[in-house]
Amino acid sequence: MDARKRKKKVLLMGKSGSGKSSMRSIIFSNYVAKDVRRLGATIDVEHSHARFMGNLTLNLWDCGGQDAFMDSYLNSQRENVFTNAQVLIYVFDIESREVDRDLDTYSAVISALKQFSPSAMVFCLVHKMDLVQAEHRERIYEERCRMILTQSDSMSVETFASSIWDQTLYKAWAGIVHKMIPNLSIIERFLRAFAEQISAEEIVLFERSTFLTVTSVDTTAPKSTSEETANPNPDRHERISNIMKSYKHTVAKSTKGPSSSSVSAAGFVLYKVQTPSFNAFLARFTENTYIAVVVPPGEAAFNCAVLNTMMAKGAFLKKTGVEG
């Protein structure tokens, strides 16, 4: 595959102060949620690259949302900004007082996108959901989604509710990234076959630096309904991302040295937990992934599963050609 194709242009847009740079910093730059208040306003477009699973590079265009910038994206820079975009992530601030105006801007962005990159995927994040009282969240979110969909001009749009203060942020971004990974079906087939080999209940693949869920297979699910699984925690993968990332920060804090390098040194190689009702481990799998495996109890079988997983690495790389 040629390098150009692997680079996906991702536009990150939304009103000024809606939280675009905050989430980018948490997901891709290892910020802690409470540190993002230090971020200033984004001026014009900030470009950044995020390597994801080796052969997928996200070319992030974090577009400052102040009106003047918005104007120039839609007019003078229109072609430059919107051509060749694979993904548009549009962030709505749930607390915004000018909903109609937000939607107007949104529909202008959508029409520009339709003009230059008609095949792009659109994801709308209804952000800062933590500011809404828990009992109203569902209703307000759905109302907002309906309004967004009416303005989306027949582009296919997916919406997520998110907040940087809990795991919903990881859910939203994992959902977005999941759509962009090449060879996903091959990876899933491999994992399912492997899960059966080691009698695993569940296998989850995470991206290494962001800890976003890449994909997962669950053998406890009845074959007919792939959505329904035995585990009563549907948000467990996002929670794992959240838990692991916050522990990484604890460890990084104590590993003295410049912050950026210590965060990567604080990475773990293997996490094991054995309980009477299940055994699980999370291990560095390939260069860019972590793998989480959950198996029924049994000490010897568990140790075998750990070893087998390490040995399956080679086969995984060869079969899926993920890291090239």
Binding site: P296, G298, A300
Partner: peptide
Amino acid sequence: SLGEQMEEVES
């Protein structure tokens, strides 16, 4: 169950 194991959580 895939075999024997202790009662306590270990990690």
